[in-house]
Design a protein around this nucleic acid. Structure first.
Lengths: 209, 209, 209, 209
DNA sequence: CATGAATGAGGGTTCATTCAT
DNA sequence: TATGAATGAACCCTCATTCAT
């Protein structure tokens, strides 16, 4: 119930030296590994430091508190997604909408499926922490790529704010994946088709009756 | 990281006197209130007892551990949903599909919107706890009502396992609501339309291209 | 670490009515059963009441606190032992010492072995609680029977205070049994012989070199 | 009634800095002091930490749970005993049996008498906890020393498995001491003689009539 | 800078005992 | 008298965070 200030989420130092950056990466990878294997249970700073092979004191040298560490993880994940999406949008230029959506779904599944617990945990933390400002740039980049992807098909898409539509599409895809990902080792064979169906349906269907 | 056994989630007593049942209700209401206001942070047994105005010992008379309390909350919520859905399915018999879907969306929003944090917290806990068996009956009832709702329109719906479709529809609706519900006081005006669009789109769109 | 007063160990009422006595017996039997199966772990008043099939309130009607219940159990056990010993002493009159000691060992083993956990728990509690006064009569009766048993052989026994000798004999026998009884289902075949040997050795051996 | 696993009894850290080892010693000494003064009542982790002058968190850095602390105490005590016994066995080589037994009794009394409640508590916990594996080495060392002590007198000792005999001897001595040690400040004057008598009697007396 | 020992507030749970019905 | 709901002190234990070395 502790109230957090967005300002507390910034990493502690600019880390201009490459040794620092390497340590930070090690920490973030350790954190990601723990979340991947154990979800938010078992995700504590002492454990992260241990898995990273550094002392707990060092961890706090780079992150002023646990939330900042989580936020950094979140930022990293969003930046990676933004980048992938950007590449995808570029590659799909000139392709028909179904092809583009298929590719989008595949991308989403690749990211989410490999580490369902990590993805779910990050999602959860994104809601809990005041990270809006921190992630704004990534969110915008993601929005832009999606707009880029959708804009050339805007005439095949039912009317509506394309940005909102883009975000909804992401959330719909995530929801279906999270549900099915839970404990399983492999995704159900029909999952990709169902997500495709949901996304395409949403895009094509007019919202008013 | 503690591993839980499903068997530990059962409530403790059959509650013979009505005083007991009243206490149980008080506890569950206190728990729900805390989750509504503070989400999972601040949801601890001592606080629940304090808010309920009872001693911590009393809480543990009725629930063998915190998880059992959460599970009871979960069960209660699912049972309520199942009941509402059943009534809805009955009322929508003979109505055209769009009308039925509209009604479904309105129902979902009413449930979710009033207590978005509670709903999100319960969702999260449902994934974390081994409650499958406990909730099986409710899940089945929900499935049946949805099937009931969809079956008469099966010819307007793209082919696929209707049960899977029904569940996906629920998840899609939930996802859009959770995202928009987060901190806000009132739902965005267009939310209902967007959910309707997503659900109808999923129902109508064939999954294979 | 609570300090106990011997006066707190008395049962609450004289229990002149036979219904009361029956309830008391039920309670004591439940307590004994729990100690037999689970040792001191799991020996709590609520559980005793539950196993006895009465309410916790009723239990406290007959025993002012947990210690009083334990004390009653202890008394009962000592009284039974005293009685058995008395009978044994009588039966062994005129028998040679080895025969008497054999019989004594057999008796001890019968009592101890059947319920090793109960016996150990009671032993432990006897040391912890201020029950000396309460058990004095039983202790005296036991001493007397042992004296009775030993006195006619006093010329075969090494010199020393016969009462002290009698008590030591009991403790020696108990020690060997408790050690061997621990988890096993059946006593080692040689246990009786070893106890016999220890007891006879102690009796016959002069203490000074 | 909680079931314990032997694996949970290991200490937590290897204690790299000497500060750690000092803390561990402080903790163990505090624990021993509490058991010495108050027996198992009042032996709780918070109190141990308080008496040790450290925080409760520090205690749990070194011992994963209360049982592990108890086990460490047990191990320490057994190791000390093993060492003393070894020295004694060495010193008694070539001495007549009565001399050796006298020395043994004196040693046992010194250990037990000074801290009768500690000794009794440890005995009790040794039965309750799954420490067999942990203490195996110490037990073997003790057995060996006793064998060493007894073997050269095997012709004066009644036939039987010398190891079993050695253990019985220990148990007999302990039993007499525990009984007499209870609350008293000083041991009864005749205690040493009585223990000597019991032990010698057991050694010399043939078990079968 | 790195280390890791130390801290202690916080939170889950038990169980002897009381008391209104 | 019996009942059993309610009480709360007492424990066990975790983990984010600090700070002396």
């Amino acid at each position: 119930m502790s109230t957090l200030k967005a300002s507390a989420l910034k990493p502690r130092k600019p880390a201009r030296q490459q040794r620092s950056q390497a340590t930070i990466d090690t920490i973030l990878e350790a954190a990601a590994r723990i979340l991947t294997k154990d979800s938010l249970d078992g995700f504590n700073t002492n454990r992260v430091a241990a898995v990273a092979g550094i002392s707990i004191g060092s961890l706090y040298q780079y992150f002023p508190n646990k939330e900042a560490l989580t936020a950094a993880l979140l930022l990293r994940s969003h930046e990676a997604q933004a980048e992938q999406l950007k590449a995808l949008a570029l590659a799909m230029r000139g392709q028909p909408l179904p092809t583009a959506v298929r590719a989008l779904v595949k991308l989403a599944m690749r990211g989410q499926w490999e580490q369902p617990r990590l993805a779910a945990a990050l999602d959860h933390e994104e809601r809990r922490l005041p990270v809006e400002k921190l992630l704004r740039a990534s969110h915008q980049a993601i929005d832009e790529s999606l707009l880029d992807l959708l804009h050339e098909h805007r005439h095949s898409i039912a009317p509506g704010d394309l940005t909102v539509i883009a975000r909804d599409v992401i959330d719909i895809a995530k929801a279906l994946m999270e549900k099915d990902a839970d404990g399983r080792r492999d995704p159900p064979v029909d999952l990709e088709d169902r997500i495709y169906r949901a996304v395409m349906g949403y895009l094509v269907m007019p919202s008013a009756v």
